[in-house]
Design a binder for these strands. Structure first.
Lengths: 211, 211
DNA sequence: CGAGCAGTTGAGAGATGTCAAATACAGTGG
DNA sequence: CCACTGTATTTGACATCTCTCAACTGCTCG
């Protein structure tokens, strides 16, 4: 079974058998992290590229008033910091939301991969451009939609992304996040998120069970 | 005097004299547009890369209820659609906000530039990664700050970006946008934006004159 | 059993949107 | 030159959405 990483890149750009093999071999330094563990801090210039293999992580920023805003979810297959080699430092924190298995790939390995295969290069850039597009979509979501539609949109996005890496059925998936984490994502208070969840449940639009 | 395009890339990655010369020669198909003219429509896969030379343009999306959300400003030196060759179609509209001079560069020219010079490649990727970072900052701005701070943050960002291409003094710049356009950017109504402008004026924090 | 966190609910406050109208100003045609 | 039109800006009154504060429940873990 292909790893979510390969599966995702495959989704964006065709890979040859050799590409898949090279990618598979590149992933050997895999580490396990607890929830709420920061992988990369703001202003870091980490030496490794991080790829999520299991669990949910996120990009976030903490504001002076103590609130935090999650700016992206990183789910299995997602690459955390492809941009670091070029920007040299990172402008936000990356942390786990749930227990996570994360692959560490030294920059040099990525550079080798990219110089060896044109399709891998293309696939990696594809992934970062898709990320950028997703952030733009979130910008729309947070700024223009009321709370209920914000949540609905997020759930639909997650369904599709998880389907793409084989982690969702046709209309359901495991959502391992607390309401507080969802609220930090959707730019609202936990209290309000809770009311919205209740409303969507009452309307029969979602089924959300605690494990 | 270097064009804003070269000036901006210079800012992000060192360019050799030859790089500058090559870039300068690449820019020869320059066209003039009126305000409110759409350069690239959603789902287009345009054949040219567009670089803003004069004026303000923006990325935006229109929502079902008729409102629009501006997701990025494109000011002189900015490149509109570097990602198109890889993503093949664009997920938003790019339109002018003011009269604009825009350079058209065929994809093939960009590819030539990138295969000829490593620093140009780097500079172009740098530019798209900075764009992505800016969108993340906007996400924070729109979702977590009250209206007055949203506007303040936007004005500060514009000051710095315009300074980088030589279009601002130490603490002032020409802001050729209507309040309606600012409101479409900051995700609020024109009425509310107007009140916020008044408040910042009364507090002596900004001077905003109509031409 | 007690501590702590996630989830839930209520009441009131504050920020922003909606609707409506007035002013100011530029461009247009007579 | 002037009336006319359309757009941008400005202001007021009121409605709605979301936040704040507070309390309570259920659950897990030591």
């Amino acid at each position: 079974m292909p790893t979510p990483f390969i599966r995702k890149l495959e989704y964006g750009a065709g890979l040859s058998d050799q590409d898949r093999q090279v990618l598979e071999q590149a992933v050997h330094d895999v580490r396990q992290f607890k929830p709420r563990h920061d992988l990369i801090l703001e202003d870091d210039s980490p030496e490794n590229i991080h790829v999520i293999l299991e669990g949910f992580a996120c990009r976030y920023k903490r504001l002076p008033d103590g609130t935090r805003q999650i700016m992206a979810y990183l789910i299995p297959g997602d690459c955390c910091d492809l941009h670091v080699p070029i920007l040299s430092r990172i402008d936000h924190t990356i942390g786990t939301l749930t227990p996570c298995k994360v692959a560490f790939l030294p920059h040099i390995v990525i550079e080798d991969l990219m110089s060896q295969s044109r399709s891998i290069t293309r696939a990696l850039w594809w992934a970062t451009l898709v990320d950028a597009g997703t952030v733009r979509e979130w910008l729309i979501n947070m700024s223009r939609r009321p709370a209920d539609k914000r949540l609905a949109h997020l759930l639909c996005e997650l369904l599709m992304r998880l389907q793409a890496v084989g982690l969702a059925t046709e209309n359901s998936f495991v959502l391992p996040l607390t309401q507080r984490q969802l609220a930090d994502t959707l730019a609202m208070t936990g209290v309000h998120l809770n009311r919205i969840v209740r409303q969507l449940r009452l309307d029969g639009l979602i089924m959300l069970k605690v494990k």
